[in-house]
């Protein structure tokens, strides 16, 4: 009887010596998976909601175009602007930009380039249609309308 009692007493507290290791493991996981945003957004981004979302399988093929009202209205005005990489561009520059993005890809993947159109939900169809027209001209026909899942 006394033996049992003694054993109970010694097992009273949980060993916490492995806690730092566990936390470090979590930390490394997040450090590895984190992609720090390498570019600053110049436009407002509230993505529209949709239900039929699809994931793209190859991330290296995606190039991003941001469309929305500029955050800095004193510099860029209030009309929606297009942002590619780090700078605002006009619709006329899209052709050049797509060709630059294509050059970054390997020869075989060039025609598979996908443009992820991250447009704000308040944008009108006018600018979107212009972008689509330019993308057709640039022969980058795969478009992804970036959106977030609908919460019901």
């Amino acid at each position: 009887m006394s033996k049992f009692k003694k054993k109970n007493k010694t097992e009273e507290n949980i060993p916490t010596s492995a806690l730092p290791d566990i936390i470090f493991m979590l930390l490394f996981f997040f450090m590895v998976t984190t992609v720090l945003r390498e570019q600053e957004l110049l436009v407002e981004q509230k993505l529209p909601q949709a239900t039929q979302l699809q994931k793209l399988e190859k991330k290296s093929l995606i190039s991003y175009l941001y469309v929305g009202k500029p955050k800095n209205t004193s510099l860029y005005g209030t009309e929606p602007i297009i942002q590619a990489n780090d700078v605002p561009i006009t619709t006329n520059d899209i052709l050049l930009w797509v060709n630059q993005e294509k050059d970054n890809l390997s020869e075989a993947e060039r025609d598979q380039i996908t443009i992820s159109l991250k447009a704000d939900r308040d944008v009108k169809m006018g600018p979107i249609a212009d972008i689509q027209f330019e993308l057709r001209e640039a022969d980058a026909r795969k478009v992804l309308y970036a959106s977030v899942g609908k919460t019901k």
């Binding site: 992609v35 949709a50 699809q54 994931k55 795969k142 309308y145 970036a146 959106s147």
Partner: peptide
């Protein structure tokens, strides 16, 4: 553990898991 927690919380807050989700569409040829 506290130091590790601090770092962990920092990464948790700053992480934005890139979501490449959306509606796919193929434009007509030019």
């Amino acid at each position: 553990a506290d130091i590790a927690f601090l770092l962990l919380i920092f990464f948790l807050v700053t992480t934005t898991i890139a979501s490449d989700k959306g509606i796919t569409n193929i434009l007509p040829p030019k």
